[in-house]
Design a protein around this nucleic acid. Sequence first.
DNA 1: TCTGGGGTCCTTCAGCTC
DNA 2: TCTGGAGCTGAAGGACCC
Length: 431
Amino acid sequence: MSRSQITRGARLTQADVAPHADGRRDDAGCPVLHVDMDAFYASCELRSRPDLVGLPVIVGGDGSRGVVTAATYEARRYGIHSAMPMSRAKRLCPDVVILPPDFALYAEVSAGVMAVFRDVTPLVEPLSLDEAFLDVSGAIRRLGPPAVIAEDIRSRVHDEQGITCSVGVASTKFVAKLASTRAKPDGLLVVPADRVVSFLHPLPVGELWGVGEKTEQALLRLGLATVGDVAHTPVDTLVRALGHAAGTHLAALAWGRDPRPVEVPEGEKSIGNEETFPRDVDDPEVVRRELLRLSEKVASRLRQQGYAGRTVVLKVRFADFSTISRSRTLRSPTDVGRDIYGTARDLFEALGLQRARLRLVGVRVEGLVDVDEAPRQMMLDEPELGWREAEQAVDRAGARFGRGSVRPARLLRTGEDDGFGGAPVAPRPRG
DNA sequence: TCTGGGGTCCTTCAGCTC
DNA sequence: TCTGGAGCTGAAGGACCC
């Protein structure tokens, strides 16, 4: 690694504590790296739009109900942040540049970044497209101490993918994640193993992993404002306020105890799709058509990834934002859109809604198993070649002619965006 | 201000079996 | 035969994360 690479970003920092008197390396005992891309979606877009570098740019749907998916640091200076309604972002910064999301691009860049990580260690645990934990304990002899490995990763991501990232180096996942957040943007922060407590205790409770708005309010009601306050509170008190899992978990985190190892994920646990209507809907036929579209989409993703699932979950959000879900477990796992739709529709009908105004519907399939290991329940009247084979044929047609080139007749409506991409096209007549 | 979409995990409760 | 408790599973909802 060149000197220029090491100094790029000029933010090789450590927790603000006194150095070791005996000359030990500060990253000794810190094999966990948390790597987080800076404003990932926006950074991907700026690679092909250098004219926008330095301007407030946000990525997100520009519809009436869109939210900000990512914001450059220039946009954040106006108070814009992710998950903020687009309408508000535009009010805060009328000149903000809005770009529609291109998830295929982000997936491609993410694959390149993850390849860099796996070049360093096989122990990579991705958390999302733009961040991952790495356990580099097995790479230290080959590549050097964790801080050097971290800088090398930052340089390679920058040189190969043209975006910047921040890295936290620590003894546990939780502290590494906090460190990368505090190193942003384009920085590196090492929290030495024996300074974890002094690093953690001054932080506000909201920084604890798993503490969102509700839990933060609950903790503040107990008079607990900092991580140190939580650390010095009896576990029983936390358990009473937050439940067993959250209470014991936070008590451990507040002392820097996080036994979770970096793990290569085994696979998905559920696959689902949901959609917010552009305007609230009270026509049951529109809802049924949307359920069919979502079910087909979920089934297609299941087949693509080689899964079948046993539990179908229907999600309904009403105009007042209240949300309910209903689920049904099938006799055997399925990856057939027809089955998923039939179950989702039954669940919807069972709600007995009398023209309630709906904001969103969603379909999710849980209890995933490898499709080759899934027992198939043949119906007495089921033909040998059934819906599954038909939908597999649709998958093949989609791969050849474009996704959505063949679809259920109910979803064929000229000019209607059904989310399959492209204009609706009727299947070519056979023969 | 007015709240997307994709996920995971946890808690609570009800029903069932032993 | 009846009853109560333990343990399991499924269902529903909530909180959280990115």
